[in-house]
Amino acid sequence: MPTKTILTLRVNGETHEVAVPVHKTLLEVLREDLGLIGTKHGCELGECGTCTVLVDGQPVLSCLALPVELGGREILTVEGMAPPGQLHPLQQAFAELGAAQCGYCTPGILLTSLALLADKREPTRDEIRQALSGNICRCTGYTKILEAVELAALRMSGTPSPSPLPQGGRG
C-alpha cells in the first residue's frame, strides 16, 4: 500500500482532513473518502466533463486534479450548490424544464453553468453553448439544458420571468 498523506481540503465551505495516497485524484477522494457521490465520472481521462467541480469558482475536471495541489482552494460540488433544504435557481430550473434526464451529466453541467452565471449575468445562448462545450450529455440534445440555464439567469437577474415553461410547438 502506498503511503498516505494527511491533506486538508475545503469542500462546500467545510474543512476536511483526509489521509490518502497522493496519487488519488480529487474525483476519487470526493466519492470514496468524503462520500460526495454527486460528482460522477464518465471516462476519468478528461474526455467527457462529467466529473466537473468548481475550484475557486472555476470549472475543473476532478478526474485530473490532485488534492495535494488544492490546499487552501475552495472546492464546490453539486452537494454544495445551495444551502441545506434549498435549491439553487439552476437546480430548480433544470428540474422544472426536464434538463436532467438520466441525470448523470447533470452535476457537472450545473456547476459549469454556475461558474458561467457568476461571470455573465445574462449570457447569450451561444455563450452558454461555448461554456458547456466541454460537457457531453447523451440524453437531452442539450436543448432543455440551454433553456434551463437561460431561465435560471433570468430569475437570478431579478427580471420577472414571463413564462417559466416553454409553450411553443405543442399540437
Binding site: T39, K40, A95, A100, P107, L165
Partner: peptide, 23 residues
C-alpha cells in the same frame, strides 16, 4: 401537464444513487 420529472429533484442535487455510488 408539463410537470417536472418525479426523480428530477434528487438528480439535480446529486443524491440519486447509481450502481457505482453504492459503498
Amino acid at each position: 401537464k408539463p410537470l417536472a420529472k418525479v426523480d428530477a429533484w434528487e438528480k439535480v442535487v446529486g443524491a440519486a444513487r447509481y450502481a457505482d455510488d453504492f459503498f
